[in-house]
Design a protein around this nucleic acid. Structure first.
Lengths: 339, 339
DNA sequence: ATTGGCACTCGCTGTCCGAGAGTGCTACCG
DNA sequence: CGGTAGCACTCTCGGACAGCGAGTGCCAAT
């Protein structure tokens, strides 16, 4: 029994099932794919594939359906890449270039990806941890409030309001602003802590308290996990495949997508899986609500890995198409952010 | 035939239908509500209500179900207010007070409202148009880029990057910063255009071009409709009532909720409907995708109307409960933002 | 190793029927 | 004249049942 043909059969099953959404039988396979053998032979191969845990029958005497493992093998060994058309590529480029700021770029990117894949798209904000500091601005607001604005090289702007015990001294604020920027400009946030360590001591009296407070708030900001936000688009696409692809309801899926913590964990795990495009299939997501979905991600951003973006869809998704769309959007996004 | 009792019957029908999700018949009504008359009498009243277009039967010989109009009458004339418990109120207050900045407040508020109503919550960002300017900060970034940060009294921070034809002159930037803030601080954005009109002429040569560019970018920023963002939470709650409350799929609803433009139009229309809590029922939303939903909104923010927040749910929703939750969150949010 | 044949399993669809809920109508009562 | 009781009628829903068709596994033959 030819090992090669058996994999061909698996590929054919996955492709047909993705296309038709119906369990595929031996006869249908021989008709739609030029395998050069009879249905009976296919049946033997199918039995072997089933023993290997790559396909199952939903019930006796129905066709076969790929298992999570089946999709895994398909993705790892069988799927080619489906290149985007030149027109699509051009559309991606021009759409993203029109963005006016970081929020806008990511918003456009996530909608675009949702549109391309006809699935739910997610885009993580470039991580504070890995990006470098460009500028810290201190803006007095009233006598006792200081707005701290932190600007990163990725164009991200974070803000925190400080409430102070004493009235502000404009001169000290000015000195602190200069001093901070000299000490910290261009540093990645991980290196920042050390650079700012002794800074507070340079200021006398009132200034010292102020400096300490500001340094603390910068530190807190970069330490806060919640700042790693994710934007989501295309949830409506889930509804289309609701009855068919999701046994019960899409509720758990929507819940998981709204729970930033879950998404962030998953995305950062996947960032480590692979340098290029990573795929998690079904239970590989390690999350109950996403057990019936697959997710395709890619890192993007300067120096190849500042953040992650991806597309979430049913187990039965067009993997090659999704993978190429994700990769394309990630590349364009990287280019835009670098420019 | 007593008009009063007829309305009592309508109220009973709405309440039972909301509770049970099943068409309600004359017998069930007499059993669950002390109406003091027999089922036969109820039937006569029901016939009258049906003639008036307030209720319908899904099919001959099923119970009655309220129409959009029926809900409308219920909301306008029959529903009391269901006050929140003291514990709930306290929870709202403390949750919102822990927020660190505007984004965080709104994020917490929208999740909270979704939680309280078990529906989809939407919160509009305070509108730039109606809020006042607190500060404009100019931050040179490299030799030819200027980051313009616009801070409003609502705590919102907008950013724009300007690309300049010539190298920056630090001194001019400093003067412009001071001049801008003197001219514009405390003004609502609508009044801003006039105040900044002649400002560019005060600067000579290079400075004039720079000033013009900055003024232009401030103007553009406030003119851009897209800045009126909406955050949404609780989409998963839709899935729960999917099969039951929405005839086909929840797809169109999700689409409408993702389409900022649609939501914004609706929210701003509703802001004008009423000073307090406004309700749109079914087709009153004037949007096909939301034809099977109702939305309850309230304005919030300083000076009673800076922005709008609300809750979207099935036609068959708990109107009194939703209305009080929306009102409560709006009030607390107003208080937090003022402080 | 492959194939054709064959008996078998099982889900799906359509039909039929009885039960139950609810109505509208009409005649009757205070 | 409003309220009530009784009654015949309608229509949905659920279960039972049968026939169909797709698909399988196995076996003997090539």
């Amino acid at each position: 029994m030819s090992e090669d043909r058996r994999l061909d059969v698996l590929r054919a099953i996955v492709e047909d099932y993705v296309a038709t959404r119906e369990p595929v039988g031996s006869r249908a396979l021989t008709e739609r794919h030029a395998l050069g053998v009879s249905p009976a032979t296919i049946r033997n191969d199918m039995a072997a594939l089933e023993d290997a845990g790559l396909i199952v029958q939903p019930h006796t005497s129905a066709g076969r359906v790929p298992t999570d493992l089946g999709y895994r093998v398909f993705v790892d060994r069988l799927s080619g890449v489906k290149p985007l058309s030149a027109a699509e590529k051009r559309a991606i480029g021009t759409l993203l270039e029109q963005a006016v700021d970081l929020d806008d770029v990511l918003d456009r990117a996530v909608r675009l990806l949702a549109q391309l894949t006809q699935q739910v798209a997610v885009v993580q904000y470039p991580s504070l941890r890995r990006s470098a500091l460009r500028h810290v601005e201190l803006v007095p607001v009233g006598a006792r409030h200081l707005l701290v604005v932190i600007i990163t090289t990725t164009g991200r702007v974070e803000q925190r309001t400080l409430e102070l015990p004493e009235d502000l001294d404009e001169v000290t604020v000015g000195r602190l602003r200069v001093r901070l920027n000299v000490a910290a400009a261009g540093l990645r946030l991980a290196e920042l802590d050390r650079a700012l360590e002794g800074l507070a001591e340079e200021f006398a009296g009132d200034g010292s308290a102020l400096a300490r407070a500001v340094v603390a708030v910068v530190g807190e900001t970069l330490a806060q996990e919640r700042e790693e936000r994710v934007v989501v688009a295309g949830a409506a696409h889930l509804a289309r495949s609701a009855g068919a692809d999701f046994p019960h309801t899409i509720g758990p899926v929507l819940e998981a997508l709204e729970e930033q913590v879950v998404l962030l964990r998953l995305l950062s795990e996947m960032a480590e899986d692979s340098a290029g495009v990573a795929v998690r299939i079904g239970r590989e997501t390690q999350h109950e609500g996403l057990a019936e979905t697959s997710i395709v991600t890619s890192g993007y951003g300067a120096e190849g890995g500042v953040a992650v973006l991806g597309s979430v869809g049913p187990l039965r998704m067009d993997y090659p198409g999704t993978m190429s769309a994700v990769r394309a959007v990630a590349r364009y996004l990287t280019r835009i952010l670098a420019g």
